[in-house]
Amino acid sequence: MNSARKINKEVIQSKFSHIFGGMYFDHLIDGGVLKIGIVNSQANQAAIKEIADKILYNDKVQFYNTKYTYSQLKEKLAEINNFVKNNPQLPISYTSLSVRNNNIIVALKQTDDNLTKNLNDLFGAEFLNITVDNPIVTETSRSALTRPLNWRFTLEYSR
Rank of each mutant, 00 (worst) to 15 (best):
R100W: 00
L122T: 12
G22V: 09
R147S: 09
D121F: 11
N120G: 09
S14F: 08
V106C: 02
T95F: 01
R152S: 03
V84R: 08
K54G: 00
S71Y: 02
N8M: 12
M23D: 14
L145E: 12
F63I: 06
V33M: 15
S143V: 04
D112P: 05
D112S: 06
G22N: 09
S71L: 07
D30A: 14
L73T: 03
T69L: 01
K15C: 01
D133N: 10
G21K: 00
R100L: 02
K74W: 06
T131I: 15
V39S: 00
P148R: 10
V106M: 03
M1H: 13
L115F: 08
L56S: 08
Q45G: 12
F127S: 04
L115G: 07
R142Y: 02
N103C: 09
L128Y: 04
R100K: 12
N86I: 07
R100P: 06
L90I: 13
K109M: 14
K85R: 11
R152E: 04
N2Q: 11
I12S: 01
Y68N: 01
S93N: 10
M1T: 14
P91G: 08
N118G: 05
E139D: 11
N118T: 12
F25L: 15
R152A: 00
L122R: 13
E126V: 09
N81R: 04
E50R: 10
A47E: 13
I80V: 04
L115S: 01
V33E: 15
R142P: 04
E156C: 04
L73R: 04
E139S: 06
G124I: 03
E10K: 10
K15I: 10
L149I: 11
Q45V: 07
K85D: 09
V106K: 01
F63Q: 01
K35G: 07
M1P: 13
S93P: 03
K67Y: 07
S41Y: 03
A144F: 06
V106G: 00
E126Y: 08
T116L: 02
V106R: 02
V137L: 11
G22M: 11
A107I: 00
N101I: 03
S96A: 13
T69Y: 01
L34G: 09
E75T: 07
A47I: 05
S3R: 08
I136Q: 01
Q42S: 15
D113A: 15
L128A: 02
F25S: 13
M1I: 14
I29H: 11
I80Y: 04
V11G: 04
F16C: 05
R147C: 05
N44S: 12
F25H: 15
T66G: 08
D30P: 08
L119R: 00
K49T: 13
F20R: 02
K15R: 14
T138H: 04
L28P: 00
K60F: 14
